[in-house]
Design a binder for these strands. Structure first.
Lengths: 300, 300
DNA sequence: CACGTAATGTGAGAAAAAATCACATAATGA
DNA sequence: TCATTATGTGATTTTTTCTCACATTACGTG
């Protein structure tokens, strides 16, 4: 294979020959006419002949240019065809987002219509998992979940917001029970949590400055549920004080069905979007951007 | 037409996919493996997906890479085909060199076999013209001749050597005539020249410091011939002293059939090779290089 | 199973290519 | 002839690409 001339020069040649004008080619290639003119000069020098001659206001290929053009034209249209086929393929494939059931039910589903309307080209498909998610699943393009570092370093991750957990219960609980210190609350009320977040109460207690012994006693009296769904039902039924991500109880707090006397505290985990390696990054970025907008909108 | 990714990145992709190895592609493209690796990364980022994955010691295209490869492979082979077709066409076309008859007969023809043997790919065709040459003739790729500046500035020219003219005559003339000063010679001998070089004797006289009046008198007694061929015949027949380019009388001087008592002088002209615009420059350059080698060989 | 070997990946800086700007030059058509 | 619309080009800046050196990963052999 003889050494090819500069590919950019060939592209300039193709556009100029097709359009019959340096200026038009320059516009198509989003450069100045000077740039195209130089490329053509380079190409002419490569072959040692003039490839264009002036014809009125524009240029026409010389006999040598006419000899070269068909192959170059076909080559570039083949290239462009192939690249856009891949792009189209990537754009048309459904994008699969995995997500824990609780997050799906309580945060994502209410926003799913809007998400599909805003990013229809994503062709979003959501799958949930009741158990621990594996972000490396073959058939998953991205995973949305809370997780604490360290994160897999071979998977790009968009950290969306820190996890904030909050202690919630029905207004009735708070009025009948002491509203004093966190410690007082722990001593008198029943603690509710989920099996998937055994660290939630300890983290909360540590942030509130409550000693381990008091917490241990309280937890011994508490109850643990398999899923957030049951936890919330229990809290709403007035069984005790639940600890849960603020994001997932926001609507109950807003409606007044649950109340949170203490501000939410940040844990070391974050809500993040993990992208499968080798998967369409651009669409992952678009999704992350949308999620981030949605989340900052909630905080507003 | 969607905007294409970097063409060099596509070329790196094509070579890597075809050879199954970054290193092999790098070698083929005459760059380091690092350069190819970067190009592939760029291309992957353009599409937002991985195009290769590791397989043993090398790489194989992912499903996305396999989707892209056929088009890119075909495109590059089409490009390479087209470019080499043009190159081949240019190499195979005969190369026409124009040249004044005197130069052709007395310098080029004796060297023509060697020239064709050294540069067979030139497919050299020589045409001569008895009258003034027009280097712009349509059917001529290059013109070899003596000319003084100013030169056409739209035609590339390779200046090969300065023109040197020398006064020559048979040994008999020099022995019978005075061998004294140039002025003495001019006063006693018959001056011979060609109609195409009316400035030759004046240039020589000026270089030798002879006054105009003496020269004018001498020329009045002299004879002018239409072509160098007749001039040389006259000089060899002992009719007088001829002025001629040293290059064209070198063999007679070497054989001793003519002698030159004074050294040759340089004129403001040069022997040069004029290339027609729009014509294969590379072959012109090869020819110029050969001529230059040949001329320096003669001076040796 | 550690080790040599042969790949690829990557950060920093050097080198090369390309683009721009501003102006020169050339052809056209009123 | 002149305004208009092109292309060509020198000098400079910007961008891209490459190289180098080293890190990392996979393979196969003693």
């Amino acid at each position: 294979m003889a050494t090819l001339p500069s590919l950019n020069a060939l592209r300039a040649f193709e556009a100029t020959a097709r359009l019959g004008s340096v200026s038009a080619a320059a516009e198509e290639l989003h450069v100045t006419h000077g740039a195209v003119s130089r490329q053509l000069r380079t190409l002419g020098e490569h072959f040692g002949v003039e490839l264009f001659e002036k014809a009125g206001r524009g240029l026409v290929p010389t006999s040598h240019g006419r000899l070269l053009y068909p192959a170059v034209g076909e080559a570039f249209s083949r290239l462009s065809e192939g690249c856009s086929a891949l792009t189209r393929h990537l754009d048309e494939a459904p994008f699969t987002l995995a997500c824990p059931g609780s997050l799906l039910a309580r945060w994502l589903i209410p926003r799913l219509d809007r998400l599909n309307a805003d990013l229809p080209e994503l062709r979003l498909r959501v799958v949930s998992s009741e158990n621990e998610l594996d972000p490396r699943r073959e058939d998953v393009d991205a995973t949305l979940r809370f997780a604490a570092p360290p994160w897999f370093d071979d998977m790009p991750v968009f950290a969306l917001m820190p996890e904030r957990i909050v202690a919630v219960a029905t207004p009735a609980i708070w009025t009948t029970a002491a509203k004093g210190s966190a410690r007082a609350m722990l001593e008198r009320l029943t603690l509710l949590d989920t099996a998937s977040r055994p660290q939630a109460w300890p983290q909360w207690a540590a942030a509130m400055g409550v000693d381990d012994a008091t917490l241990a006693e309280a937890r011994a009296r508490g109850r643990s549920f398999e899923h957030l769904y049951y936890l919330l039902e229990a809290a709403l039924a007035g069984l005790g004080v639940a600890i849960a991500p603020e994001l997932l109880v926001a609507s109950e707090l807003h409606q007044g069905r649950l109340m949170a006397p203490w501000p939410a505290i940040e844990t070391d985990a974050s809500l993040g979007l993990w992208l499968a390696p080798g998967i369409d990054t651009r669409r992952g970025e678009r999704l992350a951007e949308w999620l981030r907008r949605e989340l900052t909108g909630v905080q507003r």
